[in-house]
Design a protein around this nucleic acid. Structure first.
Lengths: 380, 380
DNA sequence: TTGAAAGCGCTACCAG
DNA sequence: CTGGTAGCGCTTTCAA
């Protein structure tokens, strides 16, 4: 370990404190004396890329003694350029530190080289993973990623339409944007991928097969022989939840377990509150099947408060397999979805559409895995 | 929308020659055979916004019988426009569903209306929160957000420079980009905010006061009277970790506890591995002070494997207060940082620089809070 | 091979 | 008030 910076500094007061770093920015002052404005003297070739502005293709062309078209060609190899010319151009580019302007290039090529992704929130690890997966894949395909959370936004639809104007393709997660707006955007011709949302005509879609996993979960749980179970979640509020509910129900079919539904929002606080009520109510269920991990985590808290041993007195399961799920005690039985993959696939699907490699919509379904841990009870 | 009076249909000819700036290029003529492109029959002015392309400001102007400058003014209110004219223009805009092209606008205004944010990864909730906070604030300030993870990227520096060319301001988290590149970007004139990274001349910076919180943590822990403690983390790899280590060291100063350091990466797997070794080694420490929650969570797993009771046989603390920290059993004693705030402040600081409301660099320091739970032992 | 010039869509300045 | 027009920086014909 190296010597520690004697930083120990006095704990500064919270929030701001604007202090200049001291050294002013006046360092640029001394320029080369002989340079100056370089009057355009016939031969004109000042090549001074303007005071503070970055060099443009014109600066390069002038200084290299060629036309801007040649510079463009030399740089992007869009057409043959004499070796000697190319070398000369590249050298000047180097000297001037020239970088093509993104705005100029984009306008000329009529493309943004960027994807947009709209999601409800980034708090949970769920969306963060999707976004990250998307960014990774998109960047590999040469596209940047513009993000937009609809979280506390007044008008998500307008925001989405706005974003649509700045990208070559759009990824829409869940119910972030209204059907109407989605339709409008798709109609405008912009490639759109719907994630975890029922497909819409003309748009690609990508989702996880909730049903099968839910069914498997139900089947597994029904093996435990619970008398009464409760599903915590609101099927009408989310397509995903609806599928989970239906699947679990199906998985329990024929078993002796009675399964009821209690609406619940997808956050921890709601989970705790609803579970509290359910566990205190009449006919306390032996099992709480939660629509996601956060609800389940809240339910675990509620169960403990009520003096119940999770996994013994009451079983609890979640959905998503977020990090906290495996660290909770008991560890949460849940379902893992390939979120990263969801995001990266979206980038690829979008790329096909943007590059017109494909025109017919694709509808991809990925599978989810059941993760059995101990919160659902003992496994003989 | 109301029924539109079938209005004149025939827009008045704008005095001048039917073709404005003259699309003197002969190429416009040959369009699709069947789709006769705007028969230029003298009166010609079909106003059909082109086949599949979106309407441009020219389409609007032509159809409204005004100049494009007027359309621009009417739309952005940059200059007075007669009420009747404005109405007419707006109606046409509505009819054509015209939306100004982002590319055109940006090039003309020489601005991207977007910020970029570069981070190491989005896996942990840490960066996700920062990014989200930034997006929220930025969007309120009328800017979009371009994200870029340096995760598995071959050349982070090049990627950052690239991103720099597409935004009006850049937020750099931690050690994602090399000092040299940061310098280059700052020198280019682009506003830059450094997050959780030592300040650099000319760039604003924003960080959390690790030292004070670490010191408080150390002081609290020293009260437990442990004989030997171990810090898990690599100070030389991260400025944040360096500060934490120094602070904790200081907090322990004078206590009878002996504190040593064992390098460790910031992920769960590393935490488990390193903790496993440390707990099995000679002179097993009574306390593991981990550089972040993930290491701590891994350490908890390792301790349990070793048959040790966390909080009794061995105390463990983390840093960040991620969700899993409070659901772990025992719950993790840790330090909470205002991550969301970090992100939103960055957006504001950047905005001041971009809008030139301020020119001198600002260096903001936020405070972190100690969160005492049970993993560090009993509290008499 | 190469240069001149026409856009790409919009803003803003300059005359009327 | 309003229209014409010169850019913004780059790509891409069209000729030479």
């Amino acid at each position: 370990m190296k010597a520690l910076p004697d930083d120990d500094a006095v704990p500064r007061q919270a929030s701001s404190s604007g202090q200049g770093t001291g050294s002013s920015t006046g360092q640029e002052a001394a320029r080369e004396p002989g340079r100056g404005g370089t009057p355009v003297d016939g031969t004109g070739r000042s090549a001074a890329p303007a005071p503070g502005h970055p060099a443009t293709i014109y600066d390069v062309a002038r200084r290299a003694g060629v036309g801007i078209a040649t510079v463009s060609r030399a740089l992007r190899g869009s057409a043959p350029v004499a070796e000697s010319t190319r070398t000369k151009v590249l050298r000047v580019v180097e000297e001037l530190g020239y970088r093509p302007s993104y705005l100029g290039t984009s306008l000329a090529q009529q493309r943004h080289a960027a994807n947009g992704i709209v999601f409800p929130d980034l708090s949970g690890p769920y969306y963060a993973e999707v976004v990250l997966g998307h960014e990774e894949a998109a960047s590999r395909l040469g596209r940047s990623v513009l993000i937009q959370s609809t979280n506390g936004r007044p008008d998500p639809d307008a925001a989405a339409r706005d974003l649509a104007g700045r990208v070559d393709g759009l990824v829409l997660l869940g119910r972030t944007v209204g059907d109407e707006m989605v339709g409008e955007i798709v109609t405008s011709g912009l490639p759109v991928v719907l994630l975890a949302r029922p497909a819409i005509d003309g748009a690609d879609s990508l989702r996880v097969d909730n049903s099968t996993a839910a069914c498997a979960l139900g089947a597994h749980l029904s093996g435990h022989g619970f008398a009464t179970a409760r599903f915590l979640g609101s099927p009408h509020a989310s397509h995903d939840v609806a599928e989970r509910w239906a699947g679990v129900l199906q998985g329990f079919a024929g078993s002796g377990t009675r399964l009821d539904l209690t609406p619940c929002d997808l956050d921890e606080e709601s989970g705790a509150r609803v579970a509290r009520a359910v566990l205190a109510g009449p006919r306390r269920p032996d099992l709480l099947v939660c629509a996601n991990d956060e609800i389940a985590l809240g339910a675990i808290v509620a169960a403990e408060e009520a003096g119940l041993r999770v996994g013994v007195d009451v079983a609890i399961t979640g959905w998503d397999d977020i990090m906290a799920a495996r660290h909770a005690r008991p560890a949460l039985t849940t379902v893992r979805q390939p979120m990263r993959l969801l995001g990266s696939n979206a980038a690829e699907v979008l790329d096909e559409r943007i590059s017109r490699t494909r025109t017919a919509p694709r509808h991809i379904v990925l599978t989810a895995d059941l993760v059995i841990r101990s919160s659902c009870g003992s496994h003989p």
